[in-house]
Design a protein around this nucleic acid. Structure first.
Length: 599
RNA sequence: GGGGGCGUAGCUCAAUUGGUUAGAGCGCUGCCCUGUCACGGCAGAGGUUACGGGUUCGAGCCCCGCCGCUCCCGCCA
C-alpha cells in the first residue's frame, strides 16, 4: 500500500518498473472492455489502465466500481503509452501504469461540486466552496496557492535568518489598547470583570524587544481586528512583523527591498529592480489623489489653481478664493463614457461633498461640456497644453480644498482605469509590479469633530528630527518618519522610526494627543517605564502577508490564499464558528447574556 | 451602520409583458462500448424557484419582510 512514487513523478525512464501510486480518483474513463483511472495526489496525476486481458475478473469488476474522489492504491507496471495516445497536457503523459492490483482505501460520496474541472470549479459559488473547503483545497489551483504561501514563508524565514534576525513569538493574550482598531476581548476566569484582548499587532512587544536588546526581531505574526471585512481584510490575518535597533529609514528600505527581491525570485522567478522609487506623501496626493498610487498607468492629476484663480466660472474661482484648488485629469479615450459611468463618477464626487462633477468630452473636434462656455481662450489653451487634450478624451475637474479635490480625482482616476481596462484600451500585464515607497507623511491629522489631533500612523512614530520644535507650535507641519510600501496600488505594508526618548513620547501623548496622564499611565505606563532604562533608537515595519500572497497568486481576494477564511460576516462556513457556549462556561466566566442564547 | 449585486435540479445557468406540466449542459443512476484523457452512445431519476407573508383568476417573475453570500462606503491608531 505504501506508495513508491508520487503522481507527478513517472517518466519514460521508469518504464518497466513496478510501482505503487496512492491518491484520489481524479477521473475515470470506462470504455467497457478497458478502464482508465487517473490517480491524483498533491503533486499531479498519472493514468492507470485496467485491462481485463491481464487481470482477474474480480479485480476488473472492482475497478468498474471506482468513483470520483475515492482513495486508492494502485500497483502496476510502468509502460510507454501506445503510439499516438500520449497526453501532452500532463507531465506524466508519456507513460501509464498497467494495474495489477487495486486497493480501495476509502470511498467518497458524490461531490457537491466538481474538483476535476478547473473552469467549472472556478465558477462555483464561493459560499459552497467555503462550506466544503477541504474539497476546494484539493483543487490544484487552490492547492498551488497554499504551496506558494508556504514557500514564501520559508523564504522569509531564511532571509531574516541570513540577516541576523531572531524570530520571537509574542503573546496572543494581551490587553485592551482601545486607541486603534476594535479588539476581540477574552474574559478572564480568574479575575471577574477583567479581560484579555487579542493583539491588533505586536507593536508594543516588538518595541519592548528592542529595549530588551534583541536588536533585530521578526515574526510571522497573527493579528486580530474586529472591524468589517473586505476582499483584502479578514478578522485574523498575518503580518511579516519587523523591528530593528540602531537604524535609520534607509536601513528599512534596503532590508525590505532585499526581502521582496528574494520573495519575488523564489515565488515567481522574477527579478524586481531595486531600489524602489520614492514618492513624498504630498506628491502622491497631488499626482494620484491617493497615498497608495497605482503607477502602472498615467492619467495623472494636474493643477489649474493659478489658471482659474480669476476665472469667470465662479465654481472654480470661488473654490480658489476659499483657499482651495482646481485640479483636473485627462481620462484618455473615455469621451464615449456612458450616462451610467458619468453618474457613477458624479456620485463619487458627491460622496466627497462636491456639488457635482465638471467635465469636458472631446468629441468630433468639439468640447462638449456645460461649463466650457465660461472659459476664456487663455484658460482653454492652458487646459489643452497641460492635459495634452486630444480627440476622444474626457477631462474631469475637481475644485475644493486641496486634499478633498485630489482624493475625488484619485478615486475617479482608478474608476476610469478600470473602465478603460474593461474596454481593452488599458493593458496591465500580470507580471508588471510597480513598487514604491511613500514617505514624509504628516505625523498628525486633525479630527474636526473632536477638535483634537490624532496620530496618522500610531503614537510611537517619531517626528522628523528637524520638525520636533513644531510639535507644540504648528503640529500639521510635522512630518513623521513613517513609510509605506506600495505595489500596483496596494498598500503592502508600513512602518516607522519610533520615538525612543521618553520625554518626546510623553509630549506626544499628553500635549499633542491630549491623552490624560492617568490614562497614558494605565495603557502605556509599562512602555514609558521600559524606555527609562536605556531604549535604543529603533524602527520597524509590518507587511501584510496575506496581501503579499494574493498579489503573488494574482488573485483579488486574500480568501484565496488563506486555508480557512471567514466570510464577510466573520463566519467560518465549514465549522460554523462562532457558536454559542454552555451556561456553565458563562458562569465560570462570570458573564451573563442580555440576548437570548442562539442554538 | 449605509449602498449595490446575487440566490431556480448536486453544479453552472435559462425561463418573452405575470399565463399550459419550470428547461438545458455538466454531474448522478442503469445498460452498451478495448486506447480514452471534457471518452462516446442509449435510457432514466432528480425542483418547497433561499425562507415567510402579500397583490392577482393566475407569481420563479410584482410588493413587503427576512436569511445567506459578495462588492463598496463608514470603520481598519
Amino acid at each position: 500500500m505504501k506508495r513508491t512514487h508520487h503522481c507527478n513523478e513517472l517518466r519514460p525512464a521508469h518504464i518497466g518498473q513496478t510501482v505503487t501510486l496512492t491518491g484520489w480518483v481524479h477521473s475515470r474513463r470506462d470504455l467497457g472492455g478497458l478502464i482508465f483511472i487517473d490517480v491524483r495526489d498533491r503533486e499531479g496525476r498519472t493514468q492507470t489502465v485496467f485491462d481485463p486481458s491481464d487481470l482477474s475478473a474480480e479485480l476488473f469488476k472492482r475497478a468498474e466500481q471506482l468513483r470520483s474522489e475515492w482513495v486508492v492504491a494502485v500497483t502496476g507496471k510502468v509502460r510507454r503509452r501506445p503510439e499516438g495516445t500520449n497526453n501532452p497536457k500532463i507531465a506524466t503523459g508519456e507513460v501509464e501504469v498497467m494495474a495489477v492490483s487495486l486497493e480501495v482505501l476509502n470511498v467518497a460520496e458524490v461531490l457537491p461540486f466538481p474538483v476535476d474541472d478547473p473552469e467549472a470549479a472556478a465558477r462555483v459559488n464561493e459560499e459552497l466552496r467555503l462550506k466544503y473547503r477541504f474539497l476546494d483545497l484539493r483543487r490544484p489551483e487552490i492547492a498551488r496557492n497554499l504551496r506558494l504561501r508556504s514557500k514564501v514563508a520559508t523564504a522569509t524565514r531564511v532571509f531574516f535568518d541570513e540577516e541576523g534576525f531572531l524570530e520571537v513569538e509574542t503573546p496572543i493574550l494581551f490587553k485592551s489598547t482601545p486607541e486603534g482598531a476594535r479588539e476581540f476581548i477574552v474574559p478572564n476566569r480568574r479575575e471577574p470583570g477583567t479581560f484579555y484582548a487579542l493583539p491588533q499587532s505586536p507593536q508594543q512587544f516588538k518595541q519592548i524587544l528592542m529595549v530588551a536588546g534583541v536588536e533585530k526581531y521578526y515574526q510571522l505574526a497573527r493579528c486580530f481586528r474586529d472591524e468589517d471585512q473586505r476582499a483584502d481584510r479578514q478578522l485574523e490575518f498575518t503580518q511579516i512583523d519587523i523591528e530593528m535597533s540602531f537604524i535609520e529609514r534607509e536601513d528599512i528600505y534596503r532590508l525590505i527591498e532585499g526581502l521582496l527581491k528574494r520573495i519575488w525570485k523564489v515565488a515567481l522567478n522574477v527579478d524586481i529592480p531595486t531600489p524602489f522609487r520614492r514618492l513624498k506623501y504630498e506628491e502622491a496626493i497631488n499626482r494620484y489623489g491617493i497615498d497608495k498610487p497605482d503607477t502602472r498607468f498615467g492619467m495623472e492629476i494636474v493643477d489649474f489653481t493659478e489658471e482659474f484663480r480669476g476665472s469667470s466660472f465662479k465654481v472654480f474661482s470661488g473654490a480658489v478664493a476659499n483657499g482651495g484648488v482646481v485640479k483636473a485629469l485627462n481620462a484618455k479615450g473615455l469621451a464615449g463614457a456612458t450616462q451610467g459611468q458619468m453618474e457613477t463618477m458624479t456620485d463619487t464626487a458627491r460622496s466627497f461633498g462636491a456639488k457635482g462633477l465638471a467635465y469636458i468630452k472631446v468629441e468630433g473636434g468639439e468640447w462638449k461640456s456645460p461649463i466650457v462656455k465660461f472659459f476664456t481662450e487663455t484658460e482653454k489653451a492652458a487646459l489643452t497644453a497641460k492635459l495634452a487634450i486630444e480627440e476622444g478624451d474626457l477631462i474631469l475637474f475637481a475644485a475644493d480644498q486641496w486634499l478633498n479635490a485630489c482624493e475625488i480625482l484619485g478615486k475617479i482616476r482608478l474608476y476610469c482605469a478600470e473602465v478603460l481596462r474593461g474596454q481593452g484600451k488599458l493593458n496591465l500585464p500580470a507580471d508588471r509590479f510597480d513598487f514604491l515607497w511613500v514617505v514624509d507623511f504628516p505625523l498628525l491629522s486633525f479630527d474636526k469633530e473632536n477638535n483634537r489631533w490624532y496620530s496618522s500612523h500610531h503614537p510611537f512614530t517619531a517626528p522628523v528630527a528637524e520638525d520636533i520644535p513644531l510639535l507644540k507650535t504648528d503640529p500639521k507641519r510635522v512630518r513623521g518618519q513613517h513609510y509605506d510600501i506600495v505595489v500596483n496600488g496596494t498598500e503592502l505594508g508600513g512602518g516607522s522610526i519610533r520615538i525612543h526618548q521618553p520625554d518626546v513620547q510623553k509630549t506626544v501623548f499628553e500635549e499633542v494627543l491630549q491623552i490624560p496622564p492617568d490614562l497614558v499611565k494605565a495603557r502605556f505606563g509599562y512602555m514609558l517605564e521600559a524606555f527609562k532604562y536605556g531604549a535604543p533608537p529603533h524602527g520597524g515595519i509590518a507587511l501584510g502577508f496575506d496581501r503579499l500572497n494574493a498579489i503573488l497568486c494574482n488573485t483579488p481576494s486574500i480568501r484565496d490564499v488563506i486555508a480557512f477564511p471567514k466570510t464577510a460576516k466573520g463566519v467560518c462556513l465549514m465549522t460554523e464558528s462562532p457558536g454559542s457556549v454552555e451556561p456553565k462556561q458563562l458562569r465560570e466566566l462570570h458573564l451573563e447574556l442580555k440576548v437570548p442564547r442562539k442554538d
